[in-house]
């Protein structure tokens, strides 16, 4: 359809009976659904992560170490490394692109205001956590996170997600995924401290850094270096699902295969 006709149709729609609804939507999103005040955590810090994709070899060491450290149930992950087979447009050369994913500890996290009991909250150091004693398991936050960073832990029946390994940070340790990363691709640190490695790398690489789905206005605080723009939003990929079964024929997981 040509653009003029399209915009004419759009105008028509706005003129139609429901035009009155449009201002209502801003009430739904603004008045209600605003970020509650942050609580707990050190207000002098702001944790963030930088992932240097040039160093990632897709070994999944982070996936495994996080799984062990945080005792996630089989089949649920706080972090994974998505792998894509890409083909060069001209040369036809084939390569693999790796994309480690975890919670972005967004500056404007949509998962927080939706929580009906404030079990999900953002600490003053920016880390988004779940109080599993309070969580009612309504899964609203799981649906509200655009990054699939959350899941319902089938053992605790409450929401679960990456915590930047806050328990390790507090003990002066690095998160499990950072510690185990073979190429040193994951850098975590306090972005309010100008001397930290992450602050230095952010000022050094500035414009080259990218975040996932910036158009969602969540302001992710996990930055990617060496990212291809085409992977920032949902990639135009063709998955072929293949169910992975255990020896008893029970489904263990999914693999996209070509």
């Amino acid at each position: 359809m040509d653009p003029i006709r399209r915009s004419l149709l759009g105008q028509l729609a706005r003129l139609s009976a429901g035009a009155a609804l449009v201002p209502l939507s801003s009430v739904a999103n603004a008045g209600i659904n605003q970020q509650p005040p942050r609580r707990e955590g050190d207000p002098t810090k702001r944790y963030g992560m930088l992932i240097d994709l040039r160093q990632c070899i897709g070994c999944q060491a982070c996936t495994v170490s996080c799984h062990i450290e945080n005792a996630a149930p089989l089949g649920s992950f706080r972090t994974t490394v998505a792998q894509y087979e890409v083909e060069h447009q001209e040369t036809g050369e084939v390569a693999t692109f790796m994309l480690p994913r975890l919670c972005n500890h967004c500056e404007n996290p949509p998962c927080v205001p939706v929580c009906p009991v404030e079990a999900t909250f953002q600490r003053q150091d920016g880390i988004v956590v779940v109080d599993s004693d309070r969580c009612v398991g309504c899964a609203y936050c799981v649906n509200a996170c655009p990054y699939d960073a959350r899941f319902i832990n089938e053992r605790t029946q409450t929401a679960d997600k990456c915590t930047f390994c806050a328990h390790r940070l507090e003990a002066g340790l690095l998160p499990a995924c950072v510690e185990s990363c073979v190429g040193g691709a994951r850098i975590i640190g306090d972005m309010r401290d100008p001397a930290s490695q992450i602050s230095r790398m952010i000022s050094e690489h500035g414009d080259e850094l990218m975040v996932l789905q910036p158009e969602k206005h969540t302001m992710p605080q996990v930055f990617y270096l060496g990212m291809d723009e085409r992977f920032v939003t949902r990639p135009h990929a063709e998955p072929v699902a293949l169910e992975v079964l255990d020896p008893h024929g029970k489904e263990m997981g999914y693999e996209f295969h070509h």
Binding site: F77, D148, E238, Y254, F256
Partner: peptide, 17 residues
């Protein structure tokens, strides 16, 4: 980059039943 094939992604369950 012409075609992309996603090789590995975990399965995400639905959250509301």
């Amino acid at each position: 980059m012409n075609s992309t094939i996603e090789l590995l992604a975990p399965r995400y369950d639905i959250a509301w039943y």
